[in-house]
Every structure is written in C-alpha cells, then in structure tokens.
C-alpha cells in the first residue's frame, strides 16, 4: 500500500459516502445518473468476485464490501425509494448504458492477462469502469444547475482513478512491479473522460462561482 493508492481509495470511499448522504439528507437524486450507478454495481460485482476466494487483507475485504453495499444501496434509493425516485431525471438520463456492456465483455474476452473466468471478469470490470461515468457526464451537461454536492461527488470519483495512476507509476518504479497495460490504459481512459469536468470544476472553484458545463 502506498500513499497514492490509499488517497485514491479514500477519495473513492468519500465520493460514494457523499452521494449517499446527499440522497439521504436531501431525499433527492436530481442530477445523478441511475445508469452510471447501475454500471458501477456491475463493475464491483464483476471485480470483487475474489472476495470469497482470496483474502488479501482486512482493509481489502472491508472496502470491497463497502463499495458493493453502497452502490447497491444507491441504486435501491433511486429505483425504489418512494420519495427519492420521484426526483430522478428519468427524461434526461437517456444514455443506453446496456450498449457499453457487451463491447467491454467482448474486449475482455479478447484482451486479458490470462483466460480464466475470474481474470476475464476482472478485466471486463476495468473496461466497464472506464466508461461507466459517461451517462453521468452526459446528464451533467443536460441539467442546468449542478448542485455542489454532485459536483464534489464527481470530482472525488475522477480523482480516485487519477490517484491510482500515480499509484501504478509508484509501484512500477519503486516496487519493480511488472507493466500492467490493461489497468494503466483503462485508468488513463477513465481519467481522461473527466478532463473537461475537472477543468470547469477547478475554474468554478477558483472563481468561486456556480459549476456550469457548456451545453
């Protein structure tokens, strides 16, 4: 474990806690993409299958359980909670997210470290996570006023994978870890998708003005 990976995990943890708090306290999920949240449930279930077969550390196990539980909880709130589900921007969150699942799975069948069920599903989860934020970013451009809890949620979510990139650089040079192109390229694509959001988020933070994305 290094500081970049810990900071990344904490940023990721904070983002999901922030989102849950926003939904629970404001009883609203306005501006949040259900499609992205559902993709994250698939990502975590596909990636954390080794939860029961391989014990790495207490931290590792607890964090996997937390990410699975929070992502399922968020989807439950947005789909079934009588008050929250009314606030879902159903008409704006129109990205057909099931379209990205087969290509990611096919790519995982073609490009992976080793051809085993666990490895292919793990690889699939990396490819899917890289594009999972797309519905949310599209929804952001469609919703005029972005509340700052949502803005902070997306910033932390983007920051987590950016910190993981630093973690991989650190591990490659300091721990002489071997090249892990699948993680690196997926992580780069994922972080690159946040580029313009980061730009407008930092700009709004510097000028102390409301976060607005160009249409």
């Amino acid at each position: 474990m290094n500081i970049f990976r810990l900071a990344g995990d904490m940023s990721h943890l904070l983002s999901v806690i922030l989102l849950l708090l926003k939904i629970r306290t404001t009883k609203s999920c306005a501006g949040i993409s259900l499609k992205t949240q559902e993709l994250y449930v698939v990502v975590f279930l596909a990636r954390y299958l080794n939860l029961f077969t391989r014990y790495y550390s207490f931290y590792n196990t607890v964090m996997k359980l937390v990410f699975i539980a929070t992502s399922v909880c968020i989807v439950w709130y947005m789909r079934f909670h009588k008050v929250v589900k009314q606030t879902y921007n159903k008409d704006l969150d129109t990205f057909r997210h099931y379209v990205v699942i087969p290509p990611c799975f096919l790519l995982a069948l073609l490009v992976h470290h080793e051809f085993t069920v666990m490895e292919v599903l793990w690889t699939f989860s990396l490819y899917l996570e890289a594009v999972a934020i797309l519905p949310q970013l599209i929804l952001l451009q469609r919703t005029r006023n972005i509340d700052n809890l949502t803005g902070n949620y997306i910033f932390l979510l983007g920051a987590y994978r950016a910190l993981y990139l630093l973690n991989w650089i650190y591990r490659f040079f300091m721990e002489k870890a071997q090249a892990r192109w699948i993680s690196w390229i997926s992580g780069l694509v994922q972080t690159a998708l946040y580029a313009d959001f980061f730009y407008y988020y930092i700009k709004s933070w510097k000028n102390n003005e409301k976060l607005k994305l160009p249409a």
Binding site: R5, R54, Y56, F67, H113, A177, Q178, S183
Partner: peptide, 10 residues
C-alpha cells in the same frame, strides 16, 4: 504472479 500483483488493489 500477476494475480497477487494486480488483484490486491480495489
């Protein structure tokens, strides 16, 4: 092995 190497991360 690649497994312990790359799968100890979240």
């Amino acid at each position: 092995s690649s497994d312990s190497e790359s799968h100890d991360e979240l």
